[in-house]
Design a protein around this nucleic acid. Structure first.
Ligand code: MN
Ligand code: MN
Ligand code: ZN
Ligand code: ZN
Lengths: 142, 142
DNA sequence: CCCGATAGCAAGAATTATTCTAAATTCATG
DNA sequence: CATGAATTTAGAATAATTCTTGCTATCGGG
């Protein structure tokens, strides 16, 4: 899962053929930044962080990289209401809890052994490709 | 719950004080259109439908009316990814299933007796104010 | 009924996250 | 090294939504 710059390998046929994604310096740095601080940053947040290592990167490239990482399932895009999209490198199935008090978005695990069909009356024959569970609330310490 | 034009009543102290929303012709028509065809229309869809009855209504007013109805919990706003918001007059707690084949968005009921805490490992002390469950997939007939 | 105050509406401009365009650069491959 | 494909960049364009402003409707008290 640790991806290397593609310059070191052939495009098709080695480790990252799994994802089929060419790992450029920009994509690598965007991905590294997402792993380093898992606070669900926006594209602009990522842009600012990535500029430390790649001062010439453009915002359009950050969007391109994020889109590529999402398309190849290395990163998930998280949308709350109509706010700017956020990005999450946690690949386990999980939901998100937005704490209105602090603004922090927490990952929320599913309880083990629970499946969607246990909880929802899905339409007959529905094949689910994507699940999005977003919660808003407050963290009230007892 | 059936709201009347406010001209027939005082602003504070009668039936729609429950919601505190003054029912203008525009809000009434927007709400009526949502109840009449429960296909989760966008603001622009609502605009086009409402123009039959109110040819001079503006899109900004449709947005204002939808915002007012949502703020007073008569209508829910439904967001899939970054697509235009859709609007749903079903006030029961429910999720949404977007059928990629037809583009139709279906309401999805929760199974009776299930609560979020049964399914998710919520952060300690989390008080949930809003739940959003959005599914994407295909309706494959067996 | 009349009046001043408040709320809502309409038209168009502004906002802003995101996407697109086009030219330059980088890269894989032979 | 040459070639073509993929990627990056800067800036323009897009589009859903929000904002501004002037007007209209409605409210509630006298
Ligand atoms: Mn941010
Ligand atoms: Mn539509
Ligand atoms: Zn996450
Ligand atoms: Zn619905």
């Amino acid at each position: 899962m640790l991806l290397q710059p593609s310059s070191k390998r052939t495009t098709c046929g080695t480790a990252d053929e799994v994802s089929g994604l060419r790992m450029t310096r920009q994509r690598q740095e965007v991905y590294r930044v997402l792993l380093a601080q898992r606070d669900h940053p926006t594209a602009n947040d990522v842009f600012m962080r990535v500029k430390d290592g790649l001062p010439n990167i453009s915002l359009a490239t950050v969007y391109n990289c994020l889109e590529a990482l999402v398309a190849h399932n290395l990163v998930r895009q998280v949308n709350f209401e109509r706010e700017p999209s956020r990005y999450c490198p946690n690949l386990e199935e999980h939901g998100h809890f937005h704490d209105q008090g602090t603004g922090v978005i927490h990952d929320v695990k599913f309880k083990p052994g629970i499946t969607l069909a246990d909880v929802l009356e899905l339409p007959r024959g529905a094949v689910i490709q994507d699940v999005e569970i977003n919660l808003r609330g407050q963290l009230r310490l007892a």
